[in-house]
Every structure is written in structure tokens, then in C-alpha cells.
Amino acid sequence: MPGPSLPILYHGEPTGPSLIALAALFESGLQLETRSIDLLAGERYAIPDVSEPLALDHSVEGEGPVLLIEGEAITDAVFLAQYFDEQAGGAGLQPSDPYVHWQMTMWCRQTSERLAPASACLGTFTHAQDRLAAMEAAEFERIAAQIESADLRERWRDLRENRVDSAQFADSKSKVAQFCERVEDQLADGRTWLFGGFSIADLVTFAWLRPLAETEAASFAAKEGLSAWLARTEARPSVRAALDQARTDDPLQAFAPGPEINRWG
């Protein structure tokens, strides 16, 4: 009889949520098997031995990493990062002071709610649209049929059919610009990381902002604090190790459909 299966982290190319999860794993020092999957080929829906798929099927994050533990799919990069940190007995990725922890949580929440959808919208239409548009109809429908979440499936379709909402596009650009400002302001007192020590907030913000540094260059220009912080984060061994998992030449641009743009307030 085989023993209980060991946890496996399935991840896409190291950008956005997959970059967050991989780098957090390496920060934590936990030894887990990692497996690279091609998100745009629908491989997230072909992960074997998933007996509790709820969080895979209905993750608010969209096409993010999946940690499989005893058949249960564990998703959402920020919470995966917290899980790794806590499972390792406290790897220092979360501030210990409750108030600073609250500040970090708020920052991550705003990043997930505002920056991530904006970044995913800009990134997918710029870098993933061609590939989905070129896909054979039968292949696309095969993947679409496996996507349990109807709203996520709709985002795949919008992307394939290049249904760009120009108001959302403009709004996404301004959200990216706002986050560049926010990071610059947050670092204005000369601190090294956003909240004292290096934390999940640094990882999350880097993972969603850095891929846009070239296409949204104007928003990043003349921000010394931001540039230095981006370089510092990119140089962290955990981030380097995560980027080393890449299978494509430009992993930061390997976007897949992400979280939806807020439909309420």
C-alpha cells in the first residue's frame, strides 16, 4: 500500500500568483515538490488526484498556483504564502506586531483587489491574447469545458475573442500608476521593505508590479525608491530561485486570466 501522498505545489510560470507562491515557499525553507504546469494550456484542470477541488474551482484569484495536500486543493497565493510561513513555524514573512500585521494584511488585500485584476487585465491582453486566439476552437472548448467557475470561463473567452473593455483598460493603467506612487510613498522614509522586515506584502506587490515595468514605463519613471526596491526584491535568493523555475524566455510576461475587476464597490 502506498503511504499518504506528499504535498505538491503546481505552479505556472513565475509571475503574478505563481511567483508569490514559489518565492514564499523558498523563503520558508519547507521542502516540497514543485511541478510546473502550463496554465494557458488548461493544465491546472488536469492535476491528478484532486478529491477536494473547491478552492481550485472557485478561487477568486483565477489561474493561480495549486498546492495539493492529501487531495485537497489549496489556492490563493497570499494565503499560500501565509501557510508556508506558518507551517515552517514562522519564517518571518508576517510581522509579529498585530498592528503592523494589520497594515500588511490591508496592503495585500488592496493589492489583490485592485492591483492584481488591473495587472492581469493589462498583462493578459498584451501577452496572452495571441496564443489563445490562435488556439483551435476544439482545443479551446475542451479547456473551457473544464473551467468550473463561469465568471473565470468568461474571462478566458473575453481574452480569446479580444473583447477589450477600453474603460477597464484605462482604469487598470491608472491603478498600476497609483500603486507605483503608493510604493514610492511607503518607502519615502528610507525603509528597505514595505513593512519593516521583508514580508508577503513585498512579494505580492513585486509579483504584480514588476511585469509591467516596461509596458507601463511612464508610471515607474523617476521613482528612485520604487526602482531600488524592485531591484532589491528581484535580487532576493528566494525570488531568484523562483524565477529559475521558468520554462519560457520571459517568464514575467507569462500571464494567464486572473482575478475579476471589482463589480461592486
Binding site: A55, H58, E72, F79, L80, Q82, Y83, E86, S112
Partner: peptide, 14 residues
């Protein structure tokens, strides 16, 4: 338990 904590966070975000 870290996995229980994860599940609770996931539900709260959902």
C-alpha cells in the same frame, strides 16, 4: 493548524 487557518482565510475572501 496551518491548513485550517488557510481554509478559513480562503472562505473569508470568497
Amino acid at each position: 493548524d496551518a491548513r485550517d487557518r488557510w481554509r478559513i482565510r480562503w472562505w473569508m475572501k470568497f
